[in-house]
Design a protein around this nucleic acid. Structure first.
Length: 224
DNA sequence: ACATTAAATTCGA
DNA sequence: TCGAATTTAATGT
C-alpha cells in the first residue's frame, strides 16, 4: 500500500477523490522501474493495468508491414495512457517502449473499473483527459495537412508540453532528433533543419540529446 | 551518406 | 576511484 503523500505525487488526478476512493486507489496502485530501451508491452498483448508515467518517457509505436517504425505518441512525466484498452478489455494496439529509464505507476484493472463505476470525480478526470486528447489529435491531423515541416515540429513539441495531459513537465525535453523525427513523421535531417530554424527564432535551444523550450506560446503559434 | 562532435564506457594506474 | 583513451551515439551539412 503506497502512502497518501506518494499518491499525491504520482497521481495528480486522485486529488479530488473522496476518502474511501483514495483508500482503494492506494491499495490498487503500484510502481515499476523500467530500464531504458525496454519493452513494457507488445502490440497484441493483454496488459491489464492503467499506466501513468512518473518520470522518463514512453513511446507508443507500431511496425508497418515492411518493418518500418511508426511512432504514434510519446508519453512523459504526469501522463496517463491506455484507458481505452482497459475499459474495453482488449489487447494493446501498440508497442510500449521506454525510451529512457522510466518509472511507471500502475493501477490494477479492478480498481480502475471500480472508480469508473463509483466515482464522479474520477469520471470527470477521464472525460477531461479524453477530450484533451481528442483535441490534440484533431490539431495533429490539421497540422499534418496544412503546415510545412518547421511549423509541424514546433507544434508537435508544443503539444508535448500540454499542461492538461502532462501537468509536470519542465522546459527541458530529453529526446534525440532521431526520436523526435519518428514522433513527428519526418526524416532526421528534416527535423534537424526545423530545429535549427526554431532555434534561430529564439523559440527553443538545441542541445545534445535534447532541447529546451524557451517560448512555448511562440511554438504553439508557429505557422499561423 | 558522410564528417564532426558530444557523451558513455573501458581500462590502467 | 580518477582521468585519459577508446568506442558509440547523436548532430550537422
Amino acid at each position: 500500500m503506497i502512502s497518501a503523500e506518494r499518491l499525491q505525487q504520482i497521481a495528480p488526478w486522485s486529488r479530488p477523490l473522496g476518502e474511501a476512493e483514495l483508500e482503494r486507489v492506494r491499495a490498487g496502485l503500484s510502481e515499476r522501474l523500467v530500464p531504458a530501451g525496454a519493452t513494457i508491452c507488445r502490440q497484441g498483448e493483454q496488459f491489464e493495468p492503467w499506466a501513468g508515467v512518473i518520470s522518463g518517457l514512453v513511446k507508443l509505436r507500431t511496425l508497418s508491414r515492411d518493418g518500418k517504425e511508426v511512432t504514434l505518441s510519446g508519453v512523459h512525466g504526469g501522463g496517463w495512457f491506455g484507458e481505452g484498452s482497459v475499459i474495453k478489455h482488449e489487447p494493446r494496439r501498440y508497442d510500449l517502449i521506454a525510451l529512457r529509464e522510466t518509472r511507471l505507476a500502475l493501477l490494477d484493472r479492478p480498481t480502475f473499473l471500480w472508480l469508473f463505476e463509483h466515482s464522479a470525480a474520477f469520471n470527470r478526470f477521464l472525460i477531461g483527459q479524453l477530450n484533451e486528447r481528442l483535441g490534440q489529435f484533431m490539431a495533429l491531423l490539421e497540422n499534418d495537412r496544412k503546415l510545412e515541416p518547421t511549423a509541424r515540429v514546433a507544434r508537435d513539441i508544443a503539444s508535448m508540453f500540454n499542461p492538461v495531459l502532462y501537468p509536470e513537465v519542465g522546459r527541458h525535453l530529453k529526446l534525440t532528433q532521431e526520436e523526435l523525427g519518428l514522433l513527428v513523421g519526418l526524416s532526421r535531417p528534416t527535423t534537424n533543419q526545423a530545429l535549427k530554424a526554431l532555434e534561430g527564432r529564439g523559440l527553443l535551444r538545441v542541445e545534445h540529446g535534447g532541447i529546451t523550450v524557451l517560448d512555448l506560446g511562440g511554438l504553439r503559434r508557429c505557422g499561423e
